[in-house]
Design a protein around this nucleic acid. Structure first.
Length: 438
RNA sequence: GGAGGGGUGGCAGAGUGGUUGAAUGCGGCGGUCUUGAAAACCGUUAGGGCGGUGACGCUCUCGGGGGUUCGAAUCCCCCCCCCUCCGCCA
């Protein structure tokens, strides 16, 4: 959430930065300010009345103490109607505050000045590449073929169980998925300084609001209900990313300066309804309703925010390097960035069987946007409280990583060679062809 | 799910309608004393909002919300969370 005071003080700058996203949100700025101005005016009025009431109440207390009862009664009568007026104004102030926040919660973050201005993914900037597209003497198969040949994923039965967009990993496929999760967690905890956490997969509404997922993207989430009690629907949601619970760990807290920087890594499955994207035509594992992801979260001092952001990208890149996968790093333009982000790098890995780059990581610095929403602060040496920068990044998403891995490392004989660092986790150096199939 | 107990400042723990935003203890910070440190003693120590250049002023907050009252941490109602016991259960 943007700081109202900042919107007030730097109105033009805020409008201009919002406009650069190309979503027309700058129009809401005046609306928020107008409601806020009304609120402040009424607030001043009601607080004056409250001061008056408090003063008289104390006097009444003193009179009662002196047994001047008649006088006390007179004062009471005098003050009685002030209470009604206060209640009335309190109600109005609360309503205006609600209206203001309604607007503020739907305003996206301001893009950082280093973000290129643009409208769509076309305007994103490739900042660097690593490795090269695989060249092969034999035709490289897409992952769908590899999965069925090697019996890694049973798409048909996955759909039977839960509908399209749900995967049933089988045999070596299931094992590879598990190996990747362990490999990623060990890498980030062991070499990159993150602390492992394992969050609940069902999370409260506040988590979703805190990271900026709600109220704007409520239609993208899976809401659950307890048994047959429909009144419980919407109390809990399946997490769309571990970012939602993990970034909220310190919600409503005042951290000490010494606690920062905080770096968490968490594995979780991710559930996305992808409403409106149904029948998108992406077969296989590229776009699904449930996938695994290892997520990185940082809570850092604002002055460290962007240095930590670059390090986070490097941490995610390290995954792809160790797995020998060609990728590119893309700096998203203003129009392509997520709601909460001030600056985002995507990591896109090359999938030779698809002939395209797949997004496997998105690393964002949300600055204090989320911290404000969740009221997470830290205490400075001078006693003041400050909102930290909160960063999130995939390290990395798994289904697409799985695709790139098997497509990149497939062999002429149909098996898949496993990169050295992953072998101890898999307990094998290749995914073999099932004995029964050529 | 049932019965009972409880949620107060960083922590512990008083406070059952009136000058209590809150005793006391611990911890933290500053100071006196000391060659230094400890002990002792003195002082200080929550967050939000609004206004003011500022010193500061006002206001709200004792799990959350509503109510009674001139006035609520204290009384009433609803909800949430934690603890103990019982039931069910991976």
């Amino acid at each position: 959430m943007l700081d109202v005071k900042r919107i007030r003080d730097q109105r033009d700058l805020v409008r201009e930065r919002l406009a650069s996203r190309g979503a027309g949100d700058e129009a809401k700025v005046d609306q928020a300010l107008e409601v806020d101005a009304q609120r402040r005016q009424l607030l001043a009025e009601v607080e004056t009345l409250k001061a008056q009431r408090n003063r008289v109440s104390k006097e009444i207390g003193a009179l009662m103490g002196q047994r001047k009862l008649a006088e006390a009664e007179a004062r009471k009568a005098e003050t009685r109607q002030i209470g009604d007026r206060i209640a009335e104004l309190d109600g109005k102030v609360a309503a205006l505050e609600g209206a203001r926040d309604q607007v503020l919660l739907r305003l996206p973050n301001l893009p950082h000045e280093s973000v290129p201005v643009g409208r769509t993914a076309e305007d994103n900037v490739v900042v660097r590449m690593w490795g090269e597209k695989a060249v092969s003497t034999f035709p490289l198969l897409p992952h769908l073929d590899l999965c069925s040949r090697l019996k890694l994923v049973d798409f048909g039965r996955g759909a039977k169980l839960s509908g399209s967009g749900f995967l049933l990993y089988t045999g070596w496929g299931a094992r590879l998925e598990r190996a990747l999760i362990s490999f990623l967690l060990d890498l980030h905890t062991g070499q990159h300084g993150y602390t492992e956490v394992s969050p609940p997969y069902l999370i409260g509404r506040d988590c979703m609001v805190g990271v900026g997922q709600f109220p704007k993207f409520e239609d993208q989430a899976y809401a659950v209900q307890e048994g047959l009690d429909s009144s419980t629907l919407g109390r809990l949601y399946l997490l769309p990313t571990a970012e939602a619970p993990v970034a909220n760990i310190h919600r409503e807290e005042i951290l000490s300066d010494a606690q920062l920087p905080i770096r968490y890594v968490a594995y979780s499955p991710c559930f996305r309804a992808e409403a409106g994207a149904a029948g998108l035509g992406t077969r296989g594992m590229i776009r699904v309703h449930q996938f695994d992801k290892v997520e990185l979260i940082k809570i850092v001092r604002p002055e460290d925010g962007y240095a930590e952001h670059e390090k986070m990208v490097a941490d995610a890149e390290r995954v792809l390097q160790l797995l020998g996968l060609h990728y590119r790093v893309v700096l998203l333009c203003t129009g392509d960035m997520g709601f909460a982000s001030a600056k985002t790098y995507d990591l896109e890995v090359w999938a030779p069987g698809q002939g395209q780059y797949l997004e496997v990581s998105s690393c964002s610095n949300c600055e204090d946007f989320q911290a404000r929403r969740m009221n997470c602060r830290y205490k400075l040496a001078d006693g003041g409280n400050r909102f930290p920068h909160i960063l999130n990044g995939s390290g990395t998403a798994l289904a697409r990583l799985f695709v790139a891995l098997i497509e990149t490392h497939q062999q002429a004989d149909g098996s898949v060679l496993i990169p050295e660092p992953l072998r101890p986790y898999l307990g094998a150096d290749r995914l073999p062809l099932p004995a029964c199939c050529p």
